[in-house]
Design a binder for these strands. Structure first.
Length: 634
DNA sequence: GTGATAATGACGGCGGGG
DNA sequence: CCCCGCCGTCATTATCAC
């Protein structure tokens, strides 16, 4: 098996290289065509109908895991797709000459700026264009400038929170040497370039399509490889050889059960175009919506955690999704919900899918031996100056070709803290606005916090908007007139931003969030994005008692969606001191989520509540200690 | 008190090798 | 099947300067 896996990897890598060549041609044509056609007609304020329908067509549903009985679910998983995407070289490797870093304090108009002005770009943008490191004598590489300007234009014309005013660098950011912060690139949509993963998914699946295979993640990877074997006969020969040595693969899979992959029920960029697949998901009748619910938490929780979560939430199987399929950073999370899973679509614009697309200016100092194309999970600890200086010291002391052990150590630290290259041999961590961009939030969403550490904390605890929006997109047709949301553990409002990006009107949002900073951020965004509905803040889930909730629901007429990701502090692998599982101080709020969800459902259905219902929901856990017991009607 | 800086492993999945 | 090393992880806490 291991021989075969190695062989499979090699084969997939070679196939990826083939596709890369193919795409290098097609995407360049597409890109240029798109670029110049947009120059002609300008940017549309929103995605065109064609773009929308194309996106919709790309949506198919794929079964992600084996259909075993719920008693023998195995929540651990691996990611076959990642192997595929990671086998691709990060970028071409051609690094244009860039000798003089362009200083942000430069105020003179360059010839190029004037050219852009003549083309009709606003002066502010033309001015910013000269701050891009592509400029200089090597004029072959000015396309990225164009792209940046165009994305900025799209940004300016996007509705709602994406048409913020121009970015003025803070003093601290200005001091960030050589890091040319092409302001709105950070929050810019990515219309201009054909998304690589997107293409990969399309082409990859096309290969299946031509073989008339059902592209189904339930299909063993061996079959997938078989189905595209025609493209690489040599690979098949190698595979067959290995098989002879290693023995029949399928007989082995009977004894060693394949774990479900780290992807959910169909992902847009790893699915096939034009193949309609449906998913039969077993949701017990008593769990069906409305009201709908959506729960999120870390995938790599201590053993048994997701079994407990599932058993408390109607034994529905969670879908495990890595946001790496939606943006440039990994974020392995479990999502448990009773939403429909057919008819999902991605929100536009799609975010950049690689580091190089998200932060293009880092390419120039990016050493060829750093093969990263994706960030690891965005966490609170982003490294510290001493560590970054240490990397520079190590590399400077080791000459132009650092030895293997130095490279390995540097790479390990870069991966751990998501460092990016901003000078020769110099790295720095991601800045808050860059994280906002990758996480799918509007520019400066958290900027009212002056403390960067607090911003990092808020963002590390937030939803990845594109991923969540993909799941919530099915609500668009269900609630055309607007939706009433109970948002538990709202944080910085990932769910709200996602709904807004989906253009689903929020008639009412009751946000339960204990952090005042997060409340302020959500309130600020709510006003800034000119929401028409009502936003109510509640400070703590513990305050949302039966009587309070009943009062609330009588006033508003019930909720359509209960959404939230309970605190992960005691579940995260990063926690070295208090990783206590669901019994932990913070993570036990999960049981409050269950309690409130059940209340919403029962009050909404005008059911009479019994103590045994609470006991069922809460187990023998925290609920009875919160003083609520006395208020339970008997 | 606040903010910046810096240091602190364990756990579980995974894959290679015997 | 087991062992072992590698890898990644919505974090917490002590210390110091202001």
């Amino acid at each position: 098996m291991k021989h075969f896996q190695r062989c499979r990897k090699m084969w997939l890598a070679s196939f990826a290289r083939f596709i890369t060549c193919l795409i290098a041609c097609t995407s360049e044509i597409d890109r240029l065509a798109g670029l110049y056609s947009r120059i002609g007609r300008g940017w549309s304020t929103q995605a065109t109908q064609e773009e929308k329908s194309f996106q919709t067509e790309m949506v198919v549903e794929i079964i992600s895991s084996d259909d075993e009985s719920e008693t023998s679910l195995d929540w651990s998983s691996d990611d076959e797709i990642e192997i595929f995407s990671n086998s691709i070289a990060p970028f071409s490797g051609h690094v244009p000459k860039f000798t003089t870093p362009i200083c942000e304090s430069s105020s003179s108009w360059t010839k190029l700026s004037n050219q852009y002005l003549k083309m009709g770009f606003p002066s502010s943008m033309a001015f910013q264009a000269q701050h891009v490191p592509y400029l200089g004598e090597d004029r072959k590489h000015e396309d990225p400038v164009f792209n940046s300007i165009l994305t900025y234009m799209a940004l300016q014309k996007l509705p709602g929170d994406f048409n913020q005013t121009s970015y003025v660098p803070h003093a601290s950011e200005s001091a960030r040497a050589n890091h040319v912060d092409l302001f709105n690139v950070n929050s810019a949509p990515k219309y201009e370039a054909v998304n690589f993963s997107h293409h990969m998914g399309f082409q990859y699946d096309e290969a299946f399509n031509t073989k008339e295979r059902c592209c189904n993640l339930k299909t063993p990877i061996e079959d997938m490889v078989d189905s595209i074997q025609g493209l690489d006969e040599a690979g098949v020969e190698r595979q067959q050889k290995k098989r002879k040595v290693a023995g029949p693969i399928r007989s082995k899979t009977k004894t060693t059960r394949r774990k479900p992959p780290v992807i959910g029920f169909g992902l847009p960029r790893v699915s096939s175009a034009g193949i309609s697949l449906t998913v039969q998901r077993d949701i017990p009748p008593r769990a069906r919506g409305p009201p709908y619910f959506y729960f999120e938490n870390v995938m790599r929780a201590p053993k048994g955690t997701w079994e407990t979560i599932s058993s408390c939430l109607y034994k529905i199987q969670p879908e495990f999704v890595d946001s790496i399929h939606f943006t440039a950073a990994a974020r392995k999370r479990g999502y448990l919900h009773n939403l429909p899973i057919n008819g999902r679509f991605e929100i536009l614009p799609v975010p950049p899918s690689t580091i190089q697309e998200a932060l293009p200016w880092t390419k120039y100092w990016w050493p060829e031996w750093d093969k990263r194309t994706k960030f690891n999970c965005i966490v609170m600890n982003n490294g510290w100056p001493n560590d970054m200086d240490g990397i520079a010291r190590d590399l400077n002391n080791s000459g132009p070709n650092p030895p293997e052990h130095i490279r390995k150590d540097v790479l390990r630290r870069c991966k751990r803290y998501n460092y990016v290259w901003v000078q020769k041999n110099k790295v720095t961590n991601l800045k808050p606005r860059e994280i906002e961009y990758i996480m799918g939030y509007p520019n400066d969403h958290t900027s009212l916090l002056r403390n960067d550490a607090k911003r990092y904390e808020c963002l590390a605890n937030a939803f990845q908007v594109n991923t969540v929006a993909y799941h919530l997109s099915v609500l668009k047709n269900l609630f055309p007139g607007g939706i009433k949301v109970l948002s538990l553990f709202s944080g910085i409002g990932g769910a709200e931003v996602a709904l807004h990006r989906l253009n689903i009107p929020m008639k009412l949002v009751v946000s339960v969030e204990i952090s005042e900073n997060c409340q302020r951020i959500l309130q600020s965004w709510w006003e800034k994005s000119k929401q028409q509905g009502q936003l109510i803040h509640i400070s703590d889930v513990k305050h949302l008692t039966y009587s309070e909730l009943k009062k609330l629901m009588q006033k508003c007429g019930g909720f359509d969606l209960v959404i939230g990701g309970s605190p992960c502090n005691n579940l995260s692998g990063n926690n070295r001191t208090t990783r206590d599982g669901l019994d932990g101080e913070h993570s036990s709020c999960f049981f409050d989520y269950c309690r409130i969800l059940e209340l919403v459902r029962d009050v909404g259905n005008h059911k009479q509540l019994f103590i045994r219902d609470y006991a069922r929901v809460c187990g023998l856990h925290t609920f009875y200690s919160s003083g609520e017991k006395k208020k339970i009607p008997s």
